[in-house]
Nucleic acid binder design. Sequence first.
RNA 1: GGGCGUAUAGCUCAGUGGUAGAGCACUGUGUUGACAUCGCAGGGGUCGGGAGUUCAACUCUCUCUACGCCCA
Length: 951
Amino acid sequence: MSKQLDTTFDPAAIEAKWYSHWEESGAFRPERPDAEPFTIVNPPPNVTGSLHIGHALDNTLQDIVIRYERLKGKDALWVVGTDHAGIATQMVVERQLEERQDKRTNYSREEFVQKVWEWKEESGGTITRQLRRLGCSMDWSREQFTMDEHFTKAVLKVFVDLYNDGLLYRDKRLVNWDPKLKTAISDLEVEQQTIAGSFWHFKYPLADGVTLDDGRDYIEVATTRPETMLADMAVAVHPDDERYKSVVGKHVILPITGRRIPIVADEHADPELGSGAVKITPGHDFNDFEVGKRAGIAPADMLNMLDGDANVCQTADGKVPEEFIGLHRFRRDGVDGARELVVQRLKEQGFLIPHVQKNKKGEEVELDAEPRQIATPFGDRGGVVIEPWLTDQWYVNAGELAKKPIAAVKSGEIEIVPKSWEKTFFNWMENIQPWCVSRQLWWGHRIPAWYGDNGECYVAMSEEEAQAQAGEGVALTQDSDVLDTWFSSALWPFATLGWPNPPQTGEVAADASASDDRGDSPQELDGAEAPLHRPADGPPPRSGEDLFSKHYPNNLLISGFDILFFWDARMMMAGYYNTGQAPWPRLYLHGLVRAADGAKMSKSKGNVVDPLGLIDQYGADALRFFMAAMESQGRDIKMDEKRVEGYRNFATKLWNATRFCQSNGIGASSTIKAPEARLAANQWIIGEVQQTVEALDAAMADLRFDAAANTIYQFTWSRFCDWYLELIKPVFADGASEIAASETRAVAGWALDQILVMLHPFMPFITEELWHALGTRNYDLILAKWPDPRASVSRDATDAIDWVIDLTTNVRSAKNELGIAPGAKLAAFLPEASDLAASTIERSSAAIERLARLTPVTIGEAPAGPAMQVTAGGDVFVIPLEGVIDIDAERARLSKALEASQKEANSLEGRLSNPNFVERAKPEAVEKAREDHAHHSGEVERLTAALARLG
RNA sequence: GGGCGUAUAGCUCAGUGGUAGAGCACUGUGUUGACAUCGCAGGGGUCGGGAGUUCAACUCUCUCUACGCCCA
């Protein structure tokens, strides 16, 4: 039953209604057991997060794809869920405790984790509600969480498998330690920032009376981190450095600690840099760690001088003076730390070499240190300087796991779109380092490793299995760490589909054979055109369904490029390792959404645009369309609210066009195939629909979201609304042919339906509303069938309409330039009519009168007197203008056109007279040049004559 | 230091080996009861600079400049 549409379109009034209708009816994953599968997994947002503009982009693109594939009849599955987000979530809960002057360590591990679960229950629905507001058609009935029981089981299995295959191991080496969060983090979670710092130069006195060749009794070293000298274990010089050759193998006595350390030769020391000698602190610097190992120092013997908070602690040799113990590594909150005290003591003892520089007046001044810009590592979550720290952690042999993904991208088995990211991908994957996967947190997947009294390690799925390995009576303690969140999310493409459980053999979709009672309703004249599918009676679950077999590998992954390494690459590694297959054949990477001025959005800058605010203001459809239209491959999107507004206007335009149709008896169409049409305008619009579907399909196949959006936008507004609706208005005038009106109602209703289907992936809410407003439907638009016009339209008909459009545009333009009232109806004469002109004037006089406002149109000579000339295709109309004519204005108009044609003709003439062009250019190009030349020459002739006639 | 990307109309951006398009903004105008969240018409660009390849370059190659991002 069609219903009268309100005169204004109010997005808020329809969005909630349709979303809950879709979700409740199971439309997001209709029962299609025999259909080709199409699968996307959603990048799981942090469970306690909320929707930001980047999510809006990412999810809009995915929803467009999934709705498109669903309309094309596929068994489209969009897997959704949330990520437990170890560090982020634990931080949120800890912050809440802090607000109450409470802290995590006041609780047992179990109590704290319980609090996190409570918070997850409380806030976990926020982002999923927001995704619904955006219109995302995910399969909520199977919503996943990375700490669900089945998912956790998969995580443990992968850990155990990797361990048993020797690809995951425990190792003592330097890690990136975040002293604020007190956990290790991976290389990817470290961000290098350049900050202002200092470069100090010190004297390290040589031991045993040794001197350098130049007589000095010390070696000069320089450092940006003086505090680490408390754990120095060597001084390195380049093996070829003549200045130091004589002292290699000798020793220095460290000031402050009095530690006796060797001078070693190592190529790490750069003779060009500073003095050429560098202090070596293997326990607190990644480069020094390697130097230390080369110098024969075992990691276990490397001195450590910092605790987990990065406060100074006693080294194993007990040489750190008491006054340093407990100091923070450097000045913090206005309190000096070990760095400042080391500098002070060295200066007092005469070991500081001052930095001399000139001040503004040109006078030499002495500073303790040289000011410098220093690349400094920061933790991406905690925001404090990372401390390289020697600990035992679990590592994944990423280099081994990266091999298959690299080969897959090289061979094209996995396509990265846009391709320009491939190089970045290879660059990282080919230089990948062992991945530190253990985290010293409480919230997350606990590492399935148990230790015996003597440190023996047992890795197993459960404590029982570990106990079985260890044997009776061995007391076991479980590793207290949890896994990196990305270790689990790497399994998302398959663990969400039931992996590793073998498919259940139970009855599959018992009602699959339920009667097929569609297609026989009066609406479905074309029986074969029934919708392929319909929603299940209720949402799944469908026990026994083997999702993994059917939906893995997935078909596509869409993500921001910012998580290419964090997530996408690791899914590839996990996919190949665990399933032997790529997780998906295609990876689409989109950019960032930036603020209007191009700056990165950030809370601290206060330039964050809230997508929910935009939805409130313009509607979800407008925001979605904006995202699609702006998404060209490989470029960031700048926020442009005016443009969102423009797409809200587009929605209003469609709304009003539909109201017009309603008021003329145009309603829901009954066929998917284009209706039979005789009238030129109707044939023309059918042809236009056909072209639009083809262009849209091509754009979607290439994932050109901008091209797809623009295609349907232009068709709807510039073709359907601007021309077609105007062309058919005369058909509904009083006294017009009922046969013509009837045909036009059928075609217009059909064309409008095709618009709704094609636009639906981009603007799901308004299209569904209009779909139902136009008449009774057997199924919702979300489950309709993609256009398939299967029509052939006559060239004569489309030429006729193109001719009318050309005529109309030219008449309007001429009137405008001559200052003639746009509404004025004028008589026109066509001295020499082409066949096309003659038949079109015959068939479409009403349209010519209404649009071009020419009536009557006479084929024959015009009476003598002032007139203007207007062309349509090759036909030249003469329009007498006695009384209203402004001869000067018409002369100016013709002169301008003449000048343009003359210029074109000259240019083409030049090209055609160049033998090189005629001989060597493609024949089509030459032919086109000839045609254009003929046309412009003709115009020159015509316009010259017309000007002469004006006098 | 290495890698990648971008420079096209006032703004935000598409684009193709045969001398350029969209949306917004701007100017003029308002005729037909879908729509002023609109219609119609129009102005506006030596496609960052330079060189090369080509009959032909905004499009391909090199180079320079500016900006951005990633990695070290």
